[in-house]
């Protein structure tokens, strides 16, 4: 079993020291874990573990504070941008970010999100869009695609019954206060690298006072979608990306 390559001096990749050893409660293959991991990596690389205040959402990522080893405030559902607004204004030297799902950011917290962005609060918003409510068991989200099934649109989303999927990130790019708005994913090694660069840029912007940065991560919820993790990644490429195309929407 002893492999001569497996020596401390040869270690090239490991989970960040800013990520705790707690096993994450997420389902196997959940995108949340990957995004948590790279958020921790970015904080470690920036040397800002002691200067970071995160704002946790309500939704699957409610326990993010058990996994990323920085100070956190746990928000009411959708209010994270309001909480982050005050944290940053009262502690302007700190790195302040919110981490929110699609229900949190694009349904119940729409007002807080849009107004924080429009004020140009110097915060980073990390937005996980998997088109479904994970925590509560797979209900329709504002971002659920037309025809996509959920427990509250069991035969698929129909516009006359359920309205249309909301491209909220496009709306946020229109607000004057945002400096950087991008849509990424974490399903392949290269997409993970791109998302990590995007989060780094968003965090840099927060510290430089350039305005609000929004990093949407188009994600999977394989349990909610009722697929294997690998199938979910493929389904996301085929169905989510055409409606939520990846790339920068704004960078200034």
């Amino acid at each position: 079993m002893s492999n001569p390559i497996i020596q401390p001096e040869n270690l090239v990749y490991d989970k960040s020291a800013v990520l705790t050893d707690n096993v994450m409660h997420y389902c196997p293959g959940c995108s949340h874990g990957t995004v948590h991991r790279i958020v921790a990596e970015v904080i470690e690389e920036m040397g800002l573990q002691d200067q970071t205040i995160g704002v946790a959402p309500v939704g699957c990522a409610v326990f993010i504070y058990n996994y990323i080893n920085v100070d956190f405030a746990e928000s009411a559902h959708g209010r994270a941008p309001a909480i982050a607004t005050a944290i940053k204004r009262l502690n302007p030297d700190k790195l302040v970010f919110t981490y929110q799902g699609d229900g949190d950011l694009a349904a119940i917290g729409t007002a807080e999100t849009i107004h924080a962005c429009n004020r140009g609060e110097n915060i980073a918003i990390i937005f996980i869009n998997n088109g479904i409510y994970g925590m509560t068991g797979g209900q329709m989200a504002p971002t659920t695609l037309l025809g996509m099934k959920s427990s509250t649109c069991p035969t698929g989303r129909e516009p006359h019954l359920n309205g249309y999927p909301l491209k909220i990130t496009d709306m946020l790019a229109l607000t004057e206060g945002t400096c950087y708005v991008t849509r990424q994913s974490v399903h392949t090694p290269s997409s993970v690298k791109k998302t990590k660069r995007a989060i780094r840029k968003a965090f840099d912007n927060s510290l430089q006072g350039k305005g609000t940065s929004v990093v949407e991560v188009v994600s999977t919820c394989n349990s909610g979608w009722k697929m294997t993790p690998v199938e979910a990644n493929r389904w996301m490429e085929e169905n989510m990306f055409p409606f939520y195309p990846l790339g920068d929407l704004k960078d200034r």
Binding site: L11, V12, Y13, D14, K15, V23, C30, V192
Partner: peptide, 20 residues
């Protein structure tokens, strides 16, 4: 080859990668 692709996509941070 120690390319770390597996580590990069791992949602649970379970993979250590070594390269020589």
């Amino acid at each position: 080859t120690g390319c770390a692709s597996c580590g990069l996509v791992c949602p649970d941070g379970c993979i250590k990668v070594y390269k020589l």
